[in-house]
Simulated scan of single mutants.
Amino acid sequence: MMRTRFFSASHLSAAIAAMLVSYGSAAVIIYQAALTFGSTPEQINSWFTSLGIGCGILTFYLSLRYKAPIMMAWCTPGAALMIGMQHIPLSDAIGAFLFAGIIMLIVSFTGLFNRLVNLIPKTLACAMLAGILINFGSKTFVAMQSQTLLVGLMLLTYLLSKIRFKRYSLLFMLIVGFITAYFEGLFHIEEIKWSNPQLVWLSPSFDIQAMISVGIPLFITSLVTQNMPAITILRMHGYTDVPEQKVITSSAIATLLLAPFGAFKINLAAISSAITMGADVDPDPKQRYKANLCLAFLYLLAGMMGGVIVSLFNALPNELLMALAGIAIFGTLLSNLIESWKDEPTREASLITLLTSASGMTLLGIGSAFWGLIFGLFTYHLCYYIERQKVA
């Protein structure tokens, strides 16, 4: 009788692919978000270390506990949302991260998860995120002004590689960017150095404006773009026995424990999680969780290399980082724009949400993402009321 190996090459390859997709588009965005709040290199190291440890431990425990491919990750759209939120001290941002984690814990623990999702039309949540991402993605072309060759080649590589190598387009773009930056004398390799992983305590402060401007949009983005789609993907692949309340509660607790070290939001991974759920990973659905056990160790390894990642970004030109982060969210931006206009009766509300969120306005000290959702919800219910009056 043949003995089956506990891990196979397909498990490992799926884990590597999921890690590359997750990290490849997110690392530079997280780095930019940390800089927005004035984080030092040591503190950014702590951001990456805490995220790697948190996602690694939770992915391993939940996948092994429920024998299902459960992938935890950071909220990349939430990190993108925070870029550009100027004049918010790091301590206030940490307090907002904790606030977002507390709301998620309450929503999950009380069973309000599905009810709250239904209260916020998905079209408006997508419009809010799209509004933030439009400004973020447009920085690609701002960077092109000063580094035309570098950014132009990166964009061209991304577009051409999507013809036949769609899954690896970001990787090819990154390679071309590195090579071009090196030959242009913009890549300072000598600055890349080993730095021990660090967990730096970042004392939180609780400012009401920061909690509303950062915490609430971060919570909504995590809820609508990460946790809810991830649960749906698990169900679609037949993993109906995974207790969503316990899984989401676990992620909220992990956020509360690690936010003071820079782990701004830990949640279920959405799109990238599907990489470890297909039949090519393992013919037996009950064995696919093993790919996530491999992924957990890769997460922990990445966490241990947090300092190297920070020094790598410091060695690269800012224009490359802007282009990489901007182009990486093209797909997310496009899908959210499409989703924003999908429901015809809510299109005007979606438009107002998008324009307000993209404006960068600050009202009563509260940022545009929150007001975009508020104005959008008001318009949504007003239009609904008008339509009912017409029918009556």
Rank of each mutant, 00 (worst) to 15 (best):
D282M: 09
A323D: 02
E348F: 15
I248P: 00
A328M: 04
P285W: 11
L355D: 11
P285D: 12
F264A: 14
G278C: 09
G306A: 07
P345F: 13
F261K: 07
G326E: 08
W341G: 12
A328P: 07
A349L: 10
Y289N: 06
F264Q: 14
V310Q: 09
A252G: 04
T255S: 13
Y299W: 11
C294A: 14
L351S: 14
I329G: 10
I329W: 08
I309H: 01
I327E: 06
L324F: 04
I309P: 00
L256K: 04
K286V: 13
Y299C: 07
I248L: 14
P317Y: 01
S250E: 00
L320F: 13
V308P: 00
K286F: 10
R347N: 14
E339C: 11
L295R: 04
M304S: 14
L355C: 14
A349T: 14
F297T: 09
D343K: 13
L316H: 04
L293V: 15
L320Y: 09
F313C: 06
T332I: 12
T332V: 15
L321Q: 03
R347V: 15
T276C: 14
I327H: 08
D280V: 11
I271P: 00
N292Y: 05
E344N: 11
T353I: 09
L321W: 01
F330R: 03
L354A: 10
T255K: 04
T249C: 08
L354G: 08
I271D: 02
M322D: 12
F330W: 14
L337S: 09
S335R: 07
N336A: 09
L268Q: 00
F264S: 15
N318D: 07
L301E: 03
D343T: 13
T353W: 08
Y289P: 03
N267D: 09
M304Q: 05
K265T: 09
A349I: 15
K290P: 02
K342L: 09
T353K: 07
E319W: 01
N314Y: 03
A296G: 02
I248H: 02
Y289F: 15
N292I: 05
Y299I: 11
Y289K: 05
G326N: 08
L320N: 01
M322E: 09
P283S: 08
R347S: 11
D282V: 12
V310A: 08
M304F: 13
M277Q: 12
L258W: 06
L316G: 04
K342S: 15
T255W: 03
W341L: 14
A252C: 04
K342M: 10
P260A: 07
N318H: 07
N318F: 03
A315C: 06
K286A: 15
C294Y: 05
P260G: 10
L355A: 13
A328E: 08
M305E: 05
T249W: 01
E348D: 12
D280K: 12
M322S: 11
Y289D: 05
P285H: 11
A279H: 11
T346P: 07
K265R: 08
I329R: 09
F297H: 02
I253K: 02
I329Y: 10
I309M: 10
L324Y: 01
M305Q: 05
F297V: 10
G326I: 05
A263H: 10
F264R: 02
L324P: 01
A323V: 00
A252N: 03
L333Y: 02
I329K: 09
V247G: 06
V247H: 05
I275G: 04
T332G: 07
L321T: 02
G331L: 10
F261C: 06
K342C: 06
L268W: 00
